[in-house]
Simulated scan of single mutants.
Amino acid sequence: MTQNAIEIAADSALLVIDVQKGFDDASFWGKRNNPAAEGNIAALMDAWRETGRPVVLVRHASRPGSVLAPDQPGHAFKDFVEERRGKEALLVTKAVNSAFYGTPDLAEWLTASGIRQLVVAGIQTNMCVETTARMAGNLGYEVLVPLDATHTFDLAGPGGLSLTADALADATAVNLQGGGFARVVTTAELLDAAPAVHTP
């Protein structure tokens, strides 16, 4: 095995962050990137379920007025996630960027389950995915982020500065791996590595 080979633990947890219908509202969010994100997330969910690894679904509950508010249709998971949900998936509900500040307590569940490796995918790349991955790294987990199983939106900042969704995703990749929070990988690399530890 090469030095850079990906090793997926038998109990590696897949965190699927905020893959909710409200993110399909372009009039609310603006221009997105990576149309392949949903297909890649679905493939990872299938692989994790097929190999008996745990899946954690995270759902954002925004304030009233948001398309992600609990009383809005957009609060629901996208259909492909709901179809793959399964009774075994843990559901975490949060109101901030990090999945570690949600209910039930994610870190407590991971500790009780003895899980030390996390794969973090979902929406938005530079918001809840990056924040959750950074915090996981700070907490000492081994974190893998398949960037092509995430997407985000163009965003305006201070003083007229704005960045495209692709530029923000690139920044996330640099922040996470360059900063030592996580290893940035591809969905294909994870799918190739995932079945290995379950082979007798």
Rank of each mutant, 00 (worst) to 15 (best):
P158H: 13
L168Q: 07
E142S: 05
W109P: 00
D148R: 04
G114L: 11
Q124F: 01
R134T: 04
L155V: 05
M127V: 15
R116L: 03
S162Q: 12
T186D: 09
V119W: 02
A169Y: 03
D105I: 09
W109F: 12
A95F: 06
M135A: 01
L168E: 06
C128I: 08
F153T: 03
T131M: 12
T150E: 02
L161W: 09
G160C: 07
M127N: 14
A95C: 10
T187G: 01
D170F: 09
E130V: 11
T186H: 02
A121S: 13
G179P: 05
L168Y: 05
L118H: 04
T164P: 04
S98M: 04
G102P: 09
T132S: 15
G114H: 10
L168P: 08
G137C: 02
G179L: 07
M135G: 00
Q124C: 11
V174A: 15
V143K: 01
A169P: 04
N126E: 15
D148V: 02
G178H: 08
G159T: 09
Q124I: 14
Q177H: 11
L139A: 11
A107D: 15
P146T: 02
G102C: 07
N97V: 01
A149D: 01
A121P: 06
P104N: 11
L163M: 15
V120A: 07
L161H: 12
N97P: 01
T93A: 03
G137F: 03
S162K: 12
T172W: 06
V143T: 05
G140I: 01
T186Q: 06
L139E: 02
F181G: 00
N175H: 11
N175D: 12
T152Q: 05
T150A: 05
A167M: 13
N97E: 10
A99W: 10
V120C: 08
T187E: 04
A112Q: 15
P104H: 10
W109D: 13
D105C: 13
L147P: 00
L106H: 11
V120L: 09
T172N: 04
T187K: 04
E108Q: 15
A107N: 15
T131R: 07
A136D: 09
